[in-house]
């Protein structure tokens, strides 16, 4: 298991599983109390899948990850994250290492995938409220020629702020939208899980040799 991409997948999976109860409790407040359970089920499956077929091709790995998420997570987040990973796989096709420009393409593709599948836009209290600001911060960092880790750190921080922002708005997509005004004051579970994943990736890259 020397493949760093697989180790990264494992680190992200760990972060999700560690936050299973936290994410579920967020979903209990404005949804149906399963977000952490769903994603953890997916994370375990993804980890097992990645370990079983170590693949140097990052694109192939991400594609397998997306397929696995689609077939194990269910709910809203399964198709959304699944599509995101499938789309992110394309720019990484055939690569065994990633540069900032590729990561940018991957992030953009992932976000577009989520939008295509979920028909949401920023400001509707979804994972997009973490991911889009994160993407913008990442691109700004890249343009300022900061190192990749720093770009990721800024992206994660922007995602965190995005999560804070979701507390202030009403949900208009997903299950929380049924709550209307009552969804205010609560942070979005999906925005939170996106941020947790970004943070795990950042952390992994920071510690990477």
């Amino acid at each position: 298991m020397n493949n760093p991409a697989i180790a990264l997948i494992g680190a992200v999976a760990d972060a999700i599983v560690q936050n299973k109860e936290f994410l579920t409790s967020l979903d209990a407040a404005i949804g149906d109390a399963d977000h952490g359970i769903n994603l953890s089920r997916g994370a375990e499956a993804v980890r097992a899948k990645a370990a079983a077929s170590p693949n140097a091709d990052i694109g192939a790995l991400l594609k397998a990850t997306g397929m696995t998420l689609i077939s194990t997570v269910g709910g809203a987040s399964g198709p959304l994250y699944g599509t995101a990973f499938l789309r992110a796989a394309a720019p990484a096709q055939g690569k065994t290492a990633l540069d900032g420009e590729t990561v940018k393409l991957m992030l953009a593709a992932a976000i577009q995938g989520i939008k295509d599948r979920g028909k949401a836009t920023r400001g509707e209290k979804t994972m997009l409220d973490a991911l889009e600001p994160a993407f913008e911060a990442f691109v700004q960092g890249l343009e300022a020629q900061k190192p990749l880790v720093e770009c990721l750190e800024e992206a994660t921080e922007a995602a965190r702020q995005g999560v804070e922002f979701t507390k202030t708005i009403i949900a208009t997509k997903g299950r929380a939208s049924y709550l209307g005004e009552r969804s205010k004051g609560h942070q979005d579970p999906g925005a939170t899980s996106s941020t947790i994943m970004l943070a795990a990736i950042t952390d992994f890259c920071r510690k990477a040799p």
Partner: peptide, 12 residues
């Protein structure tokens, strides 16, 4: 049948 309160996946 999805997981409890969770939509089933497309393959199912």
């Amino acid at each position: 049948a999805g997981a409890v309160f969770t939509s089933p996946t497309p393959d199912q």
